[in-house]
Design a protein around this nucleic acid. Sequence first.
DNA 1: AGAATTTATATGATTTTTCATATTAATTGG
DNA 2: CCAATTAATATGAAAAATCATATAAATTCT
Lengths: 158, 158
Amino acid sequence: MDNVQSDGMTKDQETRPPDGRFVDTYLLYLLAAASEKASSQFHSHVRKAGLRVPEWRALACLYENEGMMITELAELSLMEQSRMTRIIDQMDQRKLVRRVSDGSDRRRVLVKLTKEGKTLASRLVSDAREHEENLLSDLADTDAARIKPVLQVLLSRL
Amino acid sequence: MDNVQSDGMTKDQETRPPDGRFVDTYLLYLLAAASEKASSQFHSHVRKAGLRVPEWRALACLYENEGMMITELAELSLMEQSRMTRIIDQMDQRKLVRRVSDGSDRRRVLVKLTKEGKTLASRLVSDAREHEENLLSDLADTDAARIKPVLQVLLSRL
DNA sequence: AGAATTTATATGATTTTTCATATTAATTGG
DNA sequence: CCAATTAATATGAAAAATCATATAAATTCT
């Protein structure tokens, strides 16, 4: 409780007051932290549903958006192509997606949700929407209410 | 170029128009994508400086904030404790940090920047600030100008 | 057409990350 | 004070991610 400091220092080393730290005002940190913390609840829901986070990402990207190339899907899902290939392998084995070779360009593999994949995707997307609504309603009366357009503008400028 | 569709479908499968996809308006996706894409440039700068991203995170968290416990540092750096332990191992070997056992609680390890670590941290933090300024100045005239307070409010509610 | 280049996906080898748990030290409750 | 519990860090084994590159198909150039 008592926090005696023998020498008179200007910067508090212990019990640092709000925003004394670099990271607390650094945009890229705020983004990473916000993403991390805002997602953690839902990610544990995803795991309870038997998916790992990257699988959920692929599923969400495929939702109502079937027939994506591995490369497209990787880009949209924010992961590297070789990782996406392996994730699709696993989801294929679990019959959540199937690979269909693209007739017009035989290098390409179109990834499509199976019936089962669609069912799971719909369920989780609707859980995600509900979760998002709750999050947003907590922010309704704050500065953060406009977070979605803010992020969309940021993304459009990157 | 021409995008003939033989059957009359209501949902465009190809060349989807803006925001037809779930993820394009889903908050957690926008956060992840914004974080990912906003950081990628600077992360490659970090790697050119000879650090991996998690090391940079630890360094940034330690900047002007020495003597953190592994657990604290892990929490602040958004990573798991066992990973932080190993990252500190490596940074210790590279003499960027040193471990000091906490006299008042011998379970604890205080991580401190070495002289060399401080030098590197100052350099990268100032690069980060410059990079952030550039990012923000791109957003100055948009909706996204207030992104930092928006994220801070979001974080405070999580 | 055919060689050179580019694009899409897959894969082997390595490095990271995670998960569960061990170890050691402090704290709490009888 | 001792036993039980909680807390901080470390570590082995397993899983996942990355990196470089292979393979195969399409495109471009001459």
